[in-house]
Amino acid sequence: MTAATSTRAGLALTDTCLSFGDGDSTVHALDHVTLEVAAGELVAIVGPSGAGKSSLLAVAGGLTRPTSGTVTVDGVDITNLKPRELTRLRRDRIGFVFQSGNLIPALTARDQLRLVEKITGREGRDPDELLASVGMSHRADRRPGQLSGGERQRVGIARALMARPALLLVDEPTAALDRKRSHEVVELLARETHEARVATIMVTHDHDVLDHCDRVLEMVDGGLGPHD
């Protein structure tokens, strides 16, 4: 497994733009963004609301097609893929971690992970092992309604890692968590990123947790720059 993932290429955005509307009302959600994230690297992106952080995740994750520029995931240029091909790419190479986990209410923690195998149609990592590594073995048979916010987020991270993705996109993972839990969750993300050699982008408002990240970038008005 390590042999396969260590050769992975991570994410590259080259001069990527995303704009909505036209004429005077044009909104530049992404303004000539260039970004490379290597396998095994955790990059945090901070910035005010509406700066384009979610747009960056959407473009990197193949949910939105950029207006210009190129997006490469794991060595594959996804800029001009068809919707069906993008779906397959997300399934096979990208993991998403959403705010507050966004788990399926009907499924237990273990089944959240097994569902990934059903969607991809191939065997992923061992669900029980993965739950153990995020410290959730004792809650494997609980549904989201019986889990705390931090626990839901851990299951969400485990679910995103099930299919051995090359790219992990994390959207405000600590938005609903207290300080202690926030640290635990981001620590976990950093560890999994390094161990599984995944290229990880985490969008966050939470400046407390940035110490765990390999690199921190700041987004302002669609442009990406270093964080001071």
């Binding site: 069906r84 779906t87 790419l89 997300r90 399934r91 959403f98």
Partner: peptide, 9 residues
């Protein structure tokens, strides 16, 4: 929508 983002066809 979560399932679709996860790549469910």
């Amino acid at each position: 929508s979560v399932l679709r983002a996860m790549g469910a066809s």
